[in-house]
C-alpha cells in the first residue's frame, strides 16, 4: 500500500490506471518492428562478427568503394532535388492558378501521387521499354537525328538514373509544395498593384520571400527521398553498385570479408545519420515556414 505514491511520481504525472494498458499493443509493436531494428543498426555498426566492439566497420566507410558511392548518391540526390524542386514549383504554381476544386487539379495531383510514391520497378521498366532497342522514344529520337550512340546511358547513374529520378521528384514536389503556393492570397498581388508595384515587384518582394522557406524545406525532403530510394535504382542497375542503397543491398547477397560482417550496418548507419540531419533541418525550416501559411 505504501508503495503507491512512488510509481505515480516515477511515471511523470500519469495516473497508473488501466488507461496505460490501452496503448501497450502499439508501443510493443513499434518497439519490436521499428525501435529494435534501429538499435540493431546503430549497435551492429560497432560490433564485429563475434559480437565484440570494434570501429573497423565505421573505418571501412572511408574506403574508396563506399566514399565513391556516397558521393554519387549525394550528387544524384542533390541534382534531382534542386531540378525537381524548380520544375515542380513552377508546375505547382500553374496548377494553383486553376480552379481549386477543378478536375484538372484532381487529375494532376492524383497522377503525381502515383508517380511519386508507387512507381519503383514499374517506372524503371517504363523507361527501359521507352528507350530500349525498339522503344518508341528511341525510334523518335532516331528520326530527328538525336539517337544516343549507346543504349547504356539509361543505366548510368549520372545520365539515365537522373532522368528517371527526376520523373518521381517533380511529382513529389508538386504534392509537397502545392499547399504553400495555394497559401498565396490574390489580395497580396492586388495590394502590390495598388501600391504601384509590377509583377516583378510582387514576385521578388512579396511571393518569393514568403515561399522561400517552404521551397527550401521541400527541396530537402526531395533530397532524402532520392537518397533513400532503392527500387528504381535496383531495377535499372544490374552491375556494380554506384549508389549507397545498392551498396547496402550488395552486402546481403555477396560474401562479406571475414570480420566485416557488419559493414552493411555501418553503411546503413551512415545513411540514417545523413537523412536525420537533413530531416532535422527540414523540421526547423518547416516550423518557420508554417508561420506564414494558413493565416
Amino acid at each position: 500500500m505504501s508503495t503507491h505514491p512512488t510509481p505515480r511520481r516515477a511515471l511523470g504525472g500519469f495516473r497508473p490506471s488501466g488507461a496505460l494498458a490501452g496503448v501497450i499493443p502499439f508501443f510493443a509493436y513499434t518497439t519490436v518492428f521499428l525501435l529494435i531494428p534501429t538499435v540493431v543498426v546503430v549497435v551492429g555498426a560497432f560490433l564485429d562478427g563475434a559480437g565484440r566492439p570494434t570501429t573497423a566497420n565505421v573505418a571501412g566507410l572511408f574506403e574508396p568503394a563506399f566514399t565513391k558511392a556516397l558521393w554519387q548518391s549525394i550528387v544524384l540526390s542533390a541534382v534531382t532535388a534542386v531540378a525537381g524542386a524548380a520544375i515542380g514549383a513552377v508546375l505547382a504554381y500553374a496548377v494553383s492558378t486553376g480552379r481549386p476544386d477543378g478536375i484538372l487539379k484532381r487529375f494532376v495531383t492524383s497522377l503525381c501521387g502515383v508517380l511519386a510514391q508507387f512507381g519503383g520497378v514499374a517506372l524503371a521498366f517504363a523507361f527501359m521499354a521507352s528507350f530500349g532497342g525498339t522503344g518508341l522514344l528511341t525510334v523518335w529520337l532516331g528520326t530527328i537525328g538525336m539517337a544516343p550512340s549507346s543504349p547504356i546511358w539509361l543505366y548510368e547513374w549520372n545520365k539515365g538514373l537522373m532522368l528517371v529520378y527526376l520523373y518521381f521528384q517533380i511529382p513529389l514536389m508538386l504534392i509537397v509544395f502545392l499547399p504553400a503556393v495555394e497559401g498565396l492570397r490574390p489580395q497580396w498581388r492586388e495590394a502590390t498593384a495598388t501600391l504601384g508595384g509590377t509583377t516583378w515587384t510582387y514576385w521578388s518582394r512579396v511571393a518569393a520571400p514568403i515561399l522561400f522557406p517552404s521551397f527550401v524545406g521541400a527541396t530537402l525532403l526531395l533530397f532524402t527521398n532520392a537518397f533513400s530510394a532503392y527500387a528504381t535504382a535496383a531495377a535499372l542497375v544490374s552491375q556494380a553498385s554506384p549508389l549507397v542503397p545498392l551498396q547496402i543491398a550488395s552486402t546481403f547477397s555477396s560474401e562479406v570479408l571475414l570480420g566485416r560482417e557488419n559493414i552493411g550496418k555501418a553503411m546503413a548507419l551512415a545513411m540514417v545519420v545523413i537523412v536525420a540531419i537533413v530531416m532535422a533541418i527540414y523540421a526547423w525550416i518547416d516550423k518557420r515556414a508554417s508561420r506564414w501559411m494558413q493565416r
Binding site: L34, I36, P37, P245, A249, A268, V272
Partner: peptide, 20 residues
C-alpha cells in the same frame, strides 16, 4: 513513433529487421 519511419529508409529497415 509514427513519423519516425520517414527518416529510416526502407533499405535500412531491412538491415535492422534481419534478426527480427
Amino acid at each position: 513513433l509514427c513519423l519516425l519511419p520517414l527518416t529510416v529508409p526502407a533499405i535500412v529497415l531491412v538491415v535492422g529487421l534481419t534478426p527480427i
